[in-house]
């Protein structure tokens, strides 16, 4: 079974880390792309452990530190052999090449924010209730914009998702030379009254690795 950590460009050398199940890392050119992988016996149950998740993450981190560009692979699929891997890469070869260019020289930062739990608006009539709720929603939107826009301004790309429960998740693709400006800005905007904010990073660019729709 072949496990893939990601695609790389200009990888200086393989990290000294071991892969999943302590298997050695390998680098292979397949379909014009350089892949980093490790091999293991096909497990009887195809379950991933917590350890595997962390090890995968560690390998991808170290690849990022040693490459010009890295497209992290999602943990979840494995290949019986190199032929199967080659077929999978061929399917997406053009997008993967574009993907490497898209993330070249960048890291990812993540943002999660939640608003305060819904305060029951004081209202006696339906119309009063709706007006109060609309006001709440507008205030929430303004808070989120104040948080997101300065950060998006420093990123090559960004994404913003909102869940029904006023929870916000954002990801930012930040060029390396903008990292310190990003950190400073994050520090400033994260202290937003009315929102619980978590900003993490730098990560390898997982959220910008899949092909754009």
């Amino acid at each position: 079974m072949i496990h893939v950590y990601g695609l790389v460009d200009e990888l200086a050398e393989l990290p000294p880390t071991r892969g999943l199940d302590d298997a050695p890392l390998e680098r292979r050119w397949i379909e014009g792309l350089e892949v980093v992988l490790s091999r293991a016996e096909t497990p009887p149950s195809a379950e991933v452990s917590r350890e595997a998740v962390l090890r995968h993450a560690q390998v991808v981190e170290e690849l990022m530190a040693r490459s010009g560009a890295v497209l992290p692979a999602q943990l979840g699929r494995a290949f019986r052999d190199e032929a199967e891997l080659a077929a999978a890469l061929q399917e997406q070869a053009a997008q993967l090449v574009r993907g490497l260019e898209r993330v070249r020289g960048c890291v990812e930062f993540g943002l999660r924010a939640v608003g305060e739990p819904g305060v029951e608006p004081e209202a006696t009539t339906g119309a009063e209730y709706m007006r109060a709720r609309l006001e709440q929603v507008r205030r929430q939107d303004a808070l989120v914009a104040a948080l997101h826009e300065p950060l998006a301004g420093l990123a090559r790309e960004s994404t913003l998702h909102r869940d029904a429960a006023d929870e916000v998740r954002a990801a930012y693709l930040v060029p390396r030379d903008a990292i310190s400006a990003f950190r400073e800005t994050a520090e400033r905007v994260a202290a937003s009254p009315g929102l619980t904010v978590v900003c993490t990073g730098p990560w390898p660019p997982y959220s910008f690795a899949a092909a754009e729709r």
Binding site: L75, G76, L85
Partner: peptide, 12 residues
């Protein structure tokens, strides 16, 4: 997240 390559073996 991350790139999804279509391998036959699904780990989940």
């Amino acid at each position: 997240k991350g790139v999804v390559l279509s391998g036959d073996i699904t780990l989940s």
